[in-house]
Design a protein around this nucleic acid. Structure first.
Length: 900
RNA sequence: GGGCGGUUAGCUCAGCGGUAGAGCAUCGGUCUUACACACCGAGGGUCGCAGGUUCGAUCCCUGCACCGCCCACCA
């Protein structure tokens, strides 16, 4: 098979993904043997496009699931999408807005139909992009949060929790977005600092002259004031007891009240109370049984309660109120004031706290169980410090407002009786009112928060509430073979970003525990955040999003995946750079070319190449095989602990710097020979390649499959899979490829190389590429010495190649001789700066001498002798000896240099 | 106001109780029968600051500074 000179990622990507799908490699089969590995993808917003965060997320999941599949696990990876209530509704509303209409004109049914149409058209786009990334998810089990079966699960959970009193309806102050015209949960409100003003307003006494001055950032809400509060211990205001005030502009009579919640230091120490438009005031209001007067409508325009200001927007009203107060000389002063303003996370509109009847979920009892599950280790976060964040939020949790005044979502299964106003909650619409038997039942208009259905995702996608085979095996795996013998519950792994720990992870934990009586996942891997080059979070609204598809076009999917893995260190944000991507692309190409080399040298080789007997393997063969074993062990280890950067690093180092740089070079000579020597080298080359590609496959699925297929005819594995994607993951063979003597020799070789390097730098001569040229020449010192320029490279080569055969002392002798010859034979090359070299040497010498003295002192120190244990003393002594040797060497070199 | 993470080479980042590492960039040298997306080599760092623990600290502890993030009803 001919391979092109460079790797073409597109061809490989197109060739293999479709094949894998056709052959059903990603489809889970509950009947399969083996331990279970299951995972659900964080459902993507149907409005979403692939961004780097999701590319990272999917890449990491795919790496794990591919590795587990190769390791023989029964794997399931469920993909799917989320209906994304507000986001999707907004998109479609914008679309029909362009057509000159709106959802109210269209009506609920027609609008819902429009959204479904939109979803069918565009909702699958993100999943298409996941396939492009190589995601090996089970597409036969793709789900959408509003699928019929998932919707049923939603209704069942709602009804069950309502019956238990965990879901209830209440009228209270909630976050309201006047643009989306819906209630929001606390989490959907973002707090942004904004430069505002603090207005000091005089509230006159009702029955006598005089006034109290209050400070507020929102003068327009004074129209809804029902009291002025001061701290009970504030002597400045002791005289306010029982006083009534005349609310300016509106002339409503309001009370003065005393409450600990008032901060005496802030403003004037007196605060106006607007229970219907401020969370603090609402609490105080309920404590003092104040009226709750809402002065705005659902679009945050002033309503009839605002009297003359009716119909104004809140902004216009603020200006009008300030003007009116000024003209009545009730505005004392205005100070600049910076404070946090809550805005809608979807549309950035300033949130208005509003009194409203909504549905809530009681969180405290659920949160306690969710905390306990992580505390006792049934679920573990990686990195662990995220557990603090999780605990912190759950410990201070408030009830969750789950109803939304939207049309796109799961409509709340509650029915109002038109006749007696009775409210019934049931999965199916009741035939008649259970109280008055009336037949006019109207379903609740509100839908549920999108995150409600997401919270059920790990088990609703498995078929819950039906006891399906999937649910039994992949969600309750303890019933079958255990994951590495460990008892655990739920799916095996969840990979997600930290910004939805509260929105999603914590809620899945709470509801999963409540509904299925077990945790929904064992491990939670929190991915780092992908940031732009300025370290900013990439968000659509910031417009700083890098499109992963463009990166894949430019560098190839494998390179993008490899780069993301390489940069993924637990607990640290990830800044993507072109340099890294370029390096990864070069890596793919390097492997490609190594394969070309191997194939080129397989001409006429047997298919398969028979495995040579152990004693036919050369030292170089056994060396690379032993290194391969170490690479396998390390890859498995780092994969298990989710150290993605180290997985990538291990493979990069082994493939590039050991297999390519050394073994391929060493193989060139035996390959030129014929017979047994060539055959065993061929086998080692191919065997290593096979194993390397398997290790690499989870990270770089396309290039690895492509090359594996090309080399496959030569593999000697007896039961070979048809595709790498389902081939067995390597296991270190554990055999001692090298004898102890050889290990020692290799260590010595390393030292020898260092010695030669320092000799070379002493001479200031850089032989460069000639080392490799020397490889091709007869290995004879005499010949090498004839040609001065090649000499140094030759020494290096010999040292590396031949010191394997030398005993350490012989190798030393060889080196010493070489150095001596260098003295005799070599003239100092042009450009050699002896002064500079001498300076460097003496600097090194000084430094080493410093350490020698230090160690000497330490060894002679009585305190050290007394305190340090034997092992430590031995270590320090050893170090001292080494340092002395180093010192001696440097001194000699320096002498030689100055003498010459 | 709480909490979390970071500060290591020009850049992006690993690492670690025993005289500092990678990739890229820089500089010098290589057309060598896989690869110039390559090869060989060089330069470059008081590991944010100050204390403490230790025979020994870049690493552990305390404090500080700066950067970033999350949470929080101070009007």
């Amino acid at each position: 098979m001919e391979l092109s000179k460079t790797f073409d990622p597109k061809a490989a990507e197109q060739r293999w993904y479709g094949r894998w799908l056709e052959l059903g490699y990603f489809t889970a089969d509950p009947a399969r043997p083996g331990p279970v590995f299951s995972m659900v993808i964080p459902p993507y917003n149907v409005t979403g496009a692939l961004h780097l965060g999701s590319a990272l997320n999917v890449t990491l999941q795919d790496i794990v699931v591919r590795a587990r599949r190769m390791q023989g696990y029964n794997t399931l990876w469920v993909p799917g999408t989320d209906h994304a209530g507000i986001a999707t509704q907004n998109v479609v509303e914008r679309e029909i807005g362009k057509e000159g209409t709106n959802r109210h004109d269209l009506g609920r049914t027609a609008f819902e139909k429009r959204v479904w149409e939109w979803k069918e058209l565009y909702g699958g786009r993100i999943l298409e992009q996941l396939r492009r990334l190589g995601a090996s998810a089970d597409w036969t089990r793709e789900h959408f949060t509003m699928d019929a079966d998932l919707s049923r699960a939603v209704l069942k959970v709602f009804v069950d929790l309502h019956r238990e009193g965990l879901i209830y309806r209440d009228r209270r102050l909630i976050n309201w977005c006047p643009r989306c015209e819906t209630a929001l949960s606390d989490l959907e409100v973002e707090h942004k600092d904004s430069d505002g003003s603090l207005y000091f307003i005089r509230y006159p006494f009702k029955q006598e002259s005089g006034h109290v001055t209050v400070a507020t950032t929102r003068p327009e809400t004074m129209l809804g004031d029902t009291a002025v509060a001061v701290h009970p211990a504030d002597e400045r205001y002791a005289h306010l007891h029982g006083k009534l005030l005349d609310l300016p502009l509106i002339h409503r009579q309001i009370r003065t009240i005393f409450d600990d919640a008032v901060d005496r230091e802030f403003g004037t120490g007196a605060v106006k109370i607007t229970p219907a438009h401020d969370f603090n005031d609402f609490e105080i209001g309920r404590r003092h049984k104040l009226d709750e007067i809402s002065v705005m409508d659902t679009r945050a325009h002033m309503n009839a309660e605002a009297g003359p200001f009716k119909g104004m927007s809140r902004e216009a009203c603020r200006r009008a109120v300030v003007d009116a107060l000024k003209s009545e000389e009730l505005l004392e002063k205005i100070e600049p004031h910076r404070h946090a303003v809550g805005v809608c996370s979807r549309c950035d509109t300033v949130i208005e706290p509003m009194i409203s009847t909504q549905w809530f979920m009681r969180m405290k009892p659920l949160a306690e169980k969710a905390i306990a599950a992580v505390r006792d280790g049934r679920t573990t976060f990686h990195p662990k410090f995220w557990e603090n964040t999780y605990f912190n939020w759950l410990e201070n949790i408030h009830d969750w407002c789950i109803s939304r005044q939207l049309w796109w979502g799961h409509r709340i299964p509650a029915y109002h009786c038109e006749r007696c106003a009775n409210l019934m909650v049931a999965i199916e619409r009741p035939a008649k009112c259970e109280k008055c038997e009336g037949r006019d039942l109207v379903q609740e208009e509100d839908v549920l928060d999108t995150w409600f259905s997401s919270a059920l995702w790990p088990f609703s996608t498995m078929g819950w509430p039906e006891e399906t085979r999937d649910l039994a095996l992949y969600y309750r795996p303890n019933e079958r073979k255990q994951y590495e013998g460990t008892q655990y519950e739920g799916t095996t792994l969840l990979v997600t970003a930290f910004d939805i720990i509260f929105f999603w992870v914590a809620r899945m934990m709470m509801i999963g525990l409540k509904v299925t009586k077990q945790v929904p996942f064992r491990d939670v891997y929190i991915t780092p955040l992908v940031r732009d080059k300025y370290g900013k979070k990439m968000t659509k609204s910031r417009g700083n999003v890098v499109d992963p598809l463009e990166l894949m076009d430019k560098y190839g999917t494998d390179a993008v995946r490899f780069t993301l893995a390489q940069l993924t260190v637990q607990g640290r944000d990830l800044v993507l750079s072109d340099e890294r991507l370029t390096a990864s692309r070069a890596f793919a190409n390097k492997i490609w070319n190594a394969a070309r080399f191997v194939l080129m040298n397989l001409e006429g080789a047997a298919q398969p190449i028979p495995r040579p007997a152990q004693d036919k393997l050369s030292l170089a063969d056994r060396w690379i095989l032993s290194r391969l074993d170490e690479a396998i062990a390390k890859t498995r280890e780092t994969l298990d602990s989710y150290e993605f950067n180290n997985v990538a690093l291990t493979l990069y180092q082994f493939i590039w710097h050991e297999y390519c740089d050394w073994y391929i070079e060493l193989a060139k000579e035996p390959l030129r020979a014929s017979g047994a020597q060539r055959d065993s080298t061929r086998w080692v080359l191919v065997h290593c390649f096979d194993q390397m590609l398997r290790l690499l496959h989870p990270l770089m699925p396309f290039v690895s499959e492509e090359l594996w297929q090309a080399l496959r005819p030569y593999f000697d594995e007896p039961k070979l899979a048809d595709h790498l994607v389902v081939a067995e993951f390597p296991v270190a063979n554990g055999g001692e490829w090298l004898s102890q003597k050889e290990r020692d020799a290799m260590d010595h070789c390393r030292e020898a190389t260092e010695a030669i390097n320092s000799l070379r730098s002493l001479l200031g001569y850089h032989p460069g590429q000639r080392m490799k040229a020397a490889l091709r020449r007869p290995r004879s010192l005499e010949l090498a010495l004839e040609e001065f320029p090649s000499w140094m490279g030759y020494v290096m080569t010999l040292a590396k190649l031949e010191s394997f055969q030398y005993t350490p002392s012989a190798a030393t002798e060889f080196l010493v001789r070489s150095c001596g010859w260098a003295e005799i034979c070599l003239e100092k090359p042009a450009g050699f700066d002896s002064e500079r070299t001498a300076a460097k040497l003496s600097k090194d010498l000084d430094e080493v001498t410093k350490f020698v003295t230090q160690h000497e002192a330490r060894l002679n120190d009585d305190g050290f002798k007394a305190k340090a244990d034997a092992e430590t003393q031995r270590l320090v002594a050893e170090k001292y000896v080494a340092l002395r040797a180093e010192q001696e060497k440097l001194r000699e070199q320096l002498e030689q240099l100055t003498a010459g």
